[in-house]
């Protein structure tokens, strides 16, 4: 290879190295439209970290919530709710789940983390969520979540299960 050919070859490779990433990164952004924060969250896989990010703000780090502010606690209440079929539909439609913008994989992990942590001695009898089940449950239309909850609460009272205080009974 002549020195001049080599030099122009190096120039071309350098130019491509600079120009190509500019195009691909711009294209990537245009296709997905996500910012740095979204990207970090999409790549999160730790259920505990996801709970901290998406749930702990209101349900608090220890799952006790703020009942006086309308945020029910998990301990003592999450197990009976997750053992009731309509309760599972309700859980899949609470605003924190619907508005989280997490994937079904991440959501199933977070819900199972909540059961693992706060179902207490009922944890072994409480079915966990699979990605497929959660996807199917979220497809069920629930237009009035408070009304739906009332129905679930009545079922739980009938079966003698404890029910958390709620500002819109």
């Amino acid at each position: 290879m002549k020195p001049r050919t080599l030099a122009s070859g190096i120039c071309l490779v350098t130019l491509l190295g600079v120009v190509l990433p500019m195009f691909t990164s711009a294209e990537e952004q245009a296709v997905t439209g996500i910012d740095g924060h979204d990207k970090v969250i999409r790549e999160m896989t730790s259920a505990k970290s996801l709970y901290m990010l998406k749930c702990s703000g209101c349900h608090r780090v220890d799952g006790t919530g703020a009942p006086e502010a309308g945020i029910p606690p998990f301990p003592g209440f999450i197990a009976p709710l997750a053992r009731n079929q309509d309760g599972r539909v309700y859980i899949s439609h609470v605003p924190g789940i619907m508005g989280s913008r997490l994937s079904n994989e991440q959501l199933a992990d977070v819900l199972n983390y909540v059961i693992d942590e706060w179902a207490g001695e009922d944890a072994s009898d409480t079915p966990r969520f699979t990605v497929e089940e959660l996807a199917a449950l979220r497809e069920i239309p629930v237009t009035n979540i408070v009304e739906y909850r009332r129905d679930v609460v009545n079922q739980l009272i009938e079966s003698g299960d404890p029910v958390a205080d709620y500002p819109w009974p």
């Binding site: 740095g36 924060h37 970090v40 969250i41 970290s49 901290m52 990010l53 998406k54 702990s56 703000g57 209101c58 608090r60 703020a66 502010a69 945020i71």
Partner: peptide, 21 residues
């Protein structure tokens, strides 16, 4: 406050993303 807002922030010192409440 009893409730809080949680976000992610990038720490340039160790190039990691942290959960900040």
């Amino acid at each position: 406050s009893l409730v809080s807002w949680v976000g992610t922030c990038h720490n340039p010192a160790d190039d990691r993303d942290y959960l900040v409440s």
